[in-house]
């Protein structure tokens, strides 16, 4: 069995939408009201293609996390359109949105967010268990993926028994286990030292980026920019520029 998850094929209603995983146009989002109102997104236009690893970069507070939250369907924008694989979350009921998210999106968090009392393999199995997959099947898939990320020996370890880099590998396995079409990562390397961060990025490029899958990675860690296919530069709630990255060519000598 091929341990790497194969994402479901994307529906292709229109030829011109063929490669578009995420389509944002004029997305606005404000927090608070009155004097404390903060405009976090001031009209974001952005397309993410399937098969690409897009990095969202920019200074702290510029709205990266807000944008990625809207894209991942865990935060509603105030205005503008955001379609993920053609779906508009605002047209879905909360329950359907939650289920859709569970099937189609994988998450990698800055602080790993593994359940501390579950073993590595159980943590990885969680997205499948949420979808009511049989436990045995979920555990088997989780084990296979942990093997893929180089943690074959640590299946039964608790997060506290793993290093930061190992925990983030577990988190990556968890983000992949259910074969999602979009993976969002918020600052996946900022809790790791440079070398570990590089190896985690290498892993993401190598096994997460698939032909029909898109990766959106938020970071302000310039050292991992070279891993991106494209870099979207954000500032003050807008996308300022989009440039091509080096796409997979890691800095010399840092990728294991």
């Amino acid at each position: 069995m091929d341990p790497a998850p194969v994402p479901a094929p994307i529906e292709r209603p229109h030829e011109d939408e063929i490669d578009i995983a995420v389509h944002c146009s004029d997305v606005m989002k404000a927090y608070g009201a009155g004097n404390t109102r903060v405009l976090a997104l001031r009209g974001v236009d952005l397309n993410v293609r399937t098969g690409e690893m897009l990095m969202l970069v920019g200074p702290s507070g510029c709205g990266k996390t807000t944008l990625i939250s809207v894209i991942a369907g865990i935060l509603d924008q105030d205005a503008g359109e955001c379609l993920v694989f053609g779906e508009d979350f605002r047209r879905m009921r909360t329950r359907d949105k939650t289920h859709w998210r569970g099937r189609n999106i994988g998450f990698v968090f800055q602080s790993f967010n593994l359940l501390p009392t579950l073993t590595a393999v159980e943590n990885v199995a969680v997205p499948l268990l949420i979808q009511h997959q049989p436990r045995a099947m979920a555990m088997a898939r989780a084990s296979a993926l942990l093997e893929r990320v180089g943690l074959k020996e640590r299946l039964r370890s608790l997060p506290s028994q793993l290093s930061g880099g190992q925990q983030q590998r577990v988190a990556i396995a968890r983000a992949l286990v259910h074969g999602p079409r979009l993976i969002v990562c918020d600052e996946p390397t900022s809790a790791l030292d440079h070398e570990t961060g590089s190896s985690v990025m290498g892993l993401l490029r190598e096994i997460a980026r698939g032909e029909n899958r898109a990766l959106v990675i938020v970071t302000h860690d310039a050292r991992i920019f070279p891993y991106a296919d494209r870099l979207a530069q954000m500032d003050d709630g807008r996308i300022k520029s989009i440039s091509a990255g080096q796409g997979a060519a890691p800095p010399q000598g840092t990728h294991p």
């Binding site: 865990i74 329950r95 939650t98 289920h99 998210r101 998450f107 967010n113 969680v126 979808q131």
Partner: peptide, 16 residues
């Protein structure tokens, strides 16, 4: 709470 939030993000419904 952080973990319940993560479960929610990963598709766990309020009912679950």
């Amino acid at each position: 709470l952080k973990h319940f939030g993560a479960l929610k993000a990963m598709g766990a419904s309020n009912g679950m």
